[in-house]
Amino acid sequence: MSKKEVRDFLIIENRPLNNSNFFIKLKSNENLPDLFPGQFVNIDIPEQNEVFLRRPFSIFEVDYNDNTISLIVKILGKGSKKLTEIGIGKTLNLVLPLGKGFTLPEKSDKVLLVGGGSGMAPMLFLAKKSGLLKGQVHLLIGARAHSDHIVLNEYAEYGHFFYATDDGTFGEKGYVTQHSVFKHSLSDYTKVYACGPLGMMKAVAAEAKSQNIFCEVSLENLMACGFGVCLCCIEPTTKGNLCVCTEGPVFNVNDLKW
């Protein structure tokens, strides 16, 4: 395990992807530690007195050549909002690397990555890092409406994308679990991964479990420390109450008491 650190990064990009999600790119002047899909960073929110604790965000992209990492930040409350308002050139203080990532697929796997909103971040990172051929990677992305979708064309080379919207304005109408790919061909996949709203992950997990398909999800429990000392972020599992920040955030759904 690489050592954990607290490090300053420079904000080099901070721009909206749609009306509620931002793309934030951060640069370090030192080499980055190895970072894996599913791992996260914990960010100290500057210039915001109402936010006391750090805020956790999944790693979306890593570039070891220019020592940058990027995040997809959804505006939820005061901390995330502040992050999206901080200008380029300002410094952010991060704790990293945190958590255990996804089980990387094997060469023979065919994987389905299910994401929603900012939950796309670790899914896209996993698609890129999987080392699989485009045909072996399917991404099923859900959102409320077309305007809520994050479409990143540069990711087209890493997998086939399928979209669902609640109102049918983009892709198929309905939840991701009602999408034809999910409903009719789930058994084509050897591994299913999901990150997004809890309800979505639970629905995906239930179906994968019933069909006995390997399935991992990334949880977003409330955290105070992010590195295993406070025991605030626990999730009940078949192995007892585990810390999401150190034993997760990625869990095999068979271990969860869902």
């Binding site: 936010v51 006391f52 604790l53 429990n221 409330l222 105070a224 406070c230 025991l231 605030c232």
Partner: peptide, 15 residues
Amino acid sequence: YPRMAETASGMLNAV
């Protein structure tokens, strides 16, 4: 869970 709530200049825990 939940065992934690952020408050003004601090936090509540119920670990």
